[in-house]
């Protein structure tokens, strides 16, 4: 069957890296110059990837959620509330990524009603199964669904969306290919019902008019994502009551 096996080579062509670079630069050129070029996955600039979210993938946790946005797949599980060992109020340990952990913490600091469980700790564990871009915002949204699933009191669900900036264009929900070549990025974590921004980070070079546009775009997407998450929670609630 495999008579030809000996003749095949497995080494990549020398120019493979260069070609990949060229392709990326072409992608970047399109994104910078053109008005609304369909992106690599067929979306237009202001289209988000389809969101699939589900509660309860892990049974041992008090609450958990799974989110899949395109190639990005995340599981978040919430344990507790349990008695605090140390004098800390709220802790989350991300998988080896301190930066994301502290950002996740900051996004929820203002949303969780900490006074409803004094002297106790809630542990939030986030695991990125596959990283396909916009990881942090997806972790934040997924964590808020998991916290709601665990019955932790919050003022509102926290949803999060990021945008990338390419030249004069703003594209929403970037994939990792797009993130690798962006001029700047902006992440908003938002409480849709209270219309409050709990976390906002930005890098790159922005004029303040463009920041306003980008933040408004993110808030709009966050509200819509919030509706999807609310529906998921309602689905779970009706399933358990039946």
């Amino acid at each position: 069957m495999s008579a030809l096996a000996g003749t095949g080579t497995y080494s990549p062509a020398a120019a493979a890296g260069g070609k990949r670079r060229e392709r990326k630069e072409e992608l970047r050129r399109h994104l910078v110059e053109d008005a609304d070029w369909p992106r690599a996955d067929g979306r237009s600039f202001h289209d988000c990837r389809p969101a699939f979210m589900q509660t309860g993938p892990t049974t041992a946790a008090s609450g958990s959620a799974y989110a899949e946005f395109g190639k990005t797949k995340v599981i978040v599980s919430v344990f507790g509330p349990r008695e605090s060992k140390k004098a800390m109020m709220y802790s989350d340990v991300g998988a080896d990524n301190k930066e994301y952990s502290s950002m996740l913490h900051k996004a929820f600091e203002g949303a969780v009603m900490l006074h409803t469980f004094p002297k106790t700790t809630v542990d939030v564990f986030a695991l990125v199964l596959e990283s396909g871009g916009s990881d942090l915002p997806i972790i934040i949204s997924c964590a808020s669904l998991a916290l709601a699933d665990a019955g932790i009191m919050m003022y509102d669900l926290v949803t999060s969306v990021s945008v990338s900036c390419f030249g004069k264009n703003i594209i929403i929900d970037p994939t990792s290919d797009e993130e690798a070549w962006q001029d700047g990025s902006l992440v908003v974590a938002f409480m849709p019902a209270r219309k409050e921004i709990t976390q906002l980070t930005l890098n790159g070079e922005w004029s303040d008019g463009r920041i306003t546009n980008a933040v408004e775009l993110c808030m709009d997407a966050c509200s819509k994502l919030g509706d999807i998450m609310r529906d998921r929670l309602k689905d779970t609630a009706t399933l358990t009551s039946e």
């Binding site: 203002g110 902006l186 890098n203 790159g204 070079e205 303040d208 920041i211 933040v215």
Partner: peptide, 30 residues
């Protein structure tokens, strides 16, 4: 930076902020 472009932004502290407050803060900071 010198040209009045915003190069980075971080929010600290727990409380959520109204979007219009953030935009106002950016222009004051500028």
């Amino acid at each position: 930076n010198r040209h009045g472009q915003i190069c980075g932004l971080t929010k600290r502290g727990g409380a959520g902020l109204d979007p219009s407050v953030i935009f106002d803060m950016i222009s004051v900071a500028k």
